[in-house]
Amino acid sequence: MTLSAHNLTMARRLANVSLALEPGTITAICGPNGAGKSTLLEALAGLIAPDLGHVRLAETMLAAMTPRERARAIGYLPQRAEIAWDVPVRSLVELGRMPYGDARAEPVEAALAALDLAAFAERRAQALSGGETARVLLARVLAGEPRWILADEPLAALDLAHQLALLAHLRRAADEGAKNRTGVVLVLHDLALAMNHADRAVVLHDGRVVADGPCEDALATEVIDRVWGVPARWLGEPGQKALVVG
């Protein structure tokens, strides 16, 4: 089901943002620091109420859904990892089942396996490295089998191999999904990762959408020059492009 934003406006953070996101695709939200990327993601997840405008899931207003209905549909991963207690990894992944009120083993095991965490399940959270923690937190989102996965910089703490593995997993989720095709929205700083792995890019600048479309267009060098203020060149073949700046 489509996730759409209609004229989202928040003082000093978002200005009249409208988007229609389709399931089965990976959308990258890009932009310089302070552009409003995380705010947009939180608004799409229904976690902050915009001053004006609204978010819809298919035809339903997100604000009109119960917290549990919303949580079943949308899995949200924030940028900052925060684990208050030294609990076992498995119990963190099981939290993903909370909107269903069950701790069904099957999706939990699948999420652990998908992120290469089966061997870590009984470890304590505080014994994990930064990259392992990032994978555990994403596994928590996957265990909820949401229709939409909204993740803020999920790749930042990961090494190259795990970045690629995670993107491949998100691609599988988008192509097949647990029940239906899942929609994936990622806030990404790394424009090359966005170019090579996303289907679509939305570029934000000062809270406004300044480019939206296939990555080749939305992340074209003119856009990068205009928005980030740096001269840039794309090298290489589609799917394996590298960005040279300066």
Binding site: A45, R70, P78, L95
Partner: peptide, 20 residues
Amino acid sequence: GPALDALTLGETVARSLGVS
């Protein structure tokens, strides 16, 4: 109890998991 468990991952995640 369950809501307190969800709070282990912070207020925002707890809300995203359906905690009121």
